[in-house]
Design a protein around this nucleic acid. Structure first.
Lengths: 350, 350
DNA sequence: TTGTACGCGTTATCAA
DNA sequence: TTGATAACGCGTACAA
């Protein structure tokens, strides 16, 4: 077992000073070609690599990005991470991941763990509980300590930082437009409670589309699911709720769901009730995941471009980090970057 | 913007020495109650937290685990990460994620980036390319530098380290047993090329089950998919291959697939050919993901317990890390932990 | 009870 | 051309 070798050990072996070794390895012209070669050969032999931690301490930069997301077993979030990792690696950064598990406390603790020097900046998506409590002090503190944050998808106006979002309103409006243009007369929406910003916005898009088509929204066709239902155990009761929705409103001929799972479950219920898709009833979901693609019938969805969001967020953060020095003029300028959605048409619509 | 405060700054403000501050904050009895309170109050006011990097450098421990996986947009791997993160956080560790993207080079580079002091140990699953090349020098080097590795799922005998696996052979044997016991006479398998160890083992399990039921394996019923096909673009050609399989072997009444996507696609093809599931043909997949649960019909699968694997791997690694000091007696003892699989019966089997 | 000095591994500055 | 020294932030053995 040969432990990692350090400058000091090389110096001792070669009977030169530490600084000579350091310079030799960085090809400094201060050092004679002789010693340079000698040192480099020795270093190569022992596979010397500078210790990252020491460099971090010295440079006050860790070259590491902290990512806090509510959940990782989720197609969208894992796509975002892939995007972040891609860009981060390309630009010489590592990615350290913390999961809030939709909990306020875990979000705070995770951020504290990382904010004590482990990372240079955050990329995060806010947990549902935090959105509910509307307690954002941990973000504010982090930013005021000079650690930049980039938020994506679940963002909040109260916090002044770079953001990467999609146009939820426009995306869902387009989806509902599509259903209406396809001839649907009674479009239902399956959405979340309003404190989840994306749910609220997507509901707005639905309403706007109806309005533009001179149709009157029917509150009976709006199902706001309690997000407790998202926990796996409660999916059955979601199914029941949807079944009731369909039974009480037999005229429904189009469904827009704010995520793919809701849509898939709704399709299942519809089929159970003997409805033909897309002839009797059409479906569109949000977020393009594996389910949408491989379900039967495959689901038309509003694509959220998770990887692209991740890439953009990472670029924004790293740009901020690398310009920090020059940017001492404190004219804090924050960007909100909107990623375009697009409709991926599959078998669940005509 | 109030930057993070350090011991030195507190010391200067309070006009005491750095070590006094340090001791006071750690409640040392060496320090008078007076100064202790004064220092602690001040520290609290300025929200002092020790710098992780400095601690890492001093303790030669980063309290961080490096995780290298082939892919993150994948139900199984994200479940594993969730398990790792859960245990790691509970035990005071962070998780830094690197993606090999199934590439040998990226695996090596990622490990090098992290091995230079950024982490205390690795948890990883080997990339397909690495398995193909059978080049494991980067693992050997890492281990010989005294950095422990725990491998999961895709492991390799050549490397001596802790491992967490499932009994692929037994799991698939059970699955095929189930099909045979359900009356299937002609069970096909959709598997991967043999260099992917899990594919090879699962194929063996299939063969063993047949043998025990005194049935002769028919090579025409064994479809070894080139993993190129896994890249999203090529799924269509996989569909074609499976369709040919079914058309050439009309007697097939059971299908075992080594992952869930193969199974789902096979079901789709079967339905297209007018076969009734599970009456005409039954299906079992491997790895329990979202697709299995929400497909129609839902898919019977061999559950791989990704989260449990992650938890176990993290525990193994952290145990090794925390016992390192005592363990100087070099009696390197490595464990291979086998997680039990179980069959989750759904609608695709009788 | 408090402070000094050292070391973790590195680089940069300045002196030899 | 080389080397000594300081600094990054912290904890601790030892000295005062």
């Amino acid at each position: 077992m040969k432990k990692k070798i350090t400058l000091k050990q090389i110096a001792r072996e070669l009977d030169v000073s530490i600084s000579t070794v350091s310079k030799a390895l960085r090809n400094s012209i201060e050092i004679s070609e002789d010693t340079r070669e000698k040192v480099q050969a020795f270093a190569k032999l022992y596979n010397y690599r500078p210790n990252n931690i020491a460099l971090s301490l010295k440079n006050r930069k860790t070259k590491t990005i902290g990512v806090i997301i509510p959940e990782i077993v989720h197609h969208f979030f894992s796509k975002v991470i892939r995007g972040i990792e891609l860009v981060a690696n390309k630009r010489g950064y590592n990615v350290i991941v913390g999961l809030s598990n939709e909990s306020f406390d875990k979000e705070v603790i995770n951020m504290q763990m990382l904010a004590n020097g482990s990372i240079d900046g955050f990329i995060l998506s806010i947990s549902k509980e935090t959105l509910q409590y509307q307690d954002y002090h941990h973000f504010i503190e982090t930013i005021s300590q000079g650690m930049p944050i980039v938020m994506f998808d679940r963002v909040v106006n109260e916090i002044n930082c770079d953001k990467v979002i999609i146009d939820d309103l426009k995306g869902s409006k387009n989806a509902v437009d599509k259903l209406l243009n396809n001839g649907c007369k009674h479009v239902a929406i399956i959405t979340t409670k309003d404190y989840v910003s994306v749910g609220r916005l997507r509901t707005q898009g639905y309403l706007q589309a109806l309005e533009e088509h001179k149709m009157i929204a029917d509150s009976h066709l709006i199902l706001k699911v309690d997000d407790e239902l998202l926990s796996e155990d409660h999916l059955d009761s979601l199914e029941v709720e949807i079944e009731e929705l369909f039974k009480k409103n037999k005229k429904i001929d189009g469904v827009f769901a704010v995520n793919e799972l809701y849509a898939i479950i709704a399709m299942k219920v519809a089929r159970k009730l003997g409805l033909k898709i897309p002839d009797d009833i059409q479906f569109i979901g949000f977020t393009d995941g594996v389910l949408s693609k491989h379900a039967t019938p495959s689901l038309t969805t509003v694509s959220q471009h998770g990887q692209e969001m991740g890439e953009k967020a990472a670029d924004l953060l790293i740009n901020k980090l690398e310009n920090e020095d020059e940017d001492e003029d404190e004219d804090e300028h924050y960007e909100t970057f909107v990623i375009e959605t697009n409709l991926i048409e599959r078998e669940s619509t005509k």
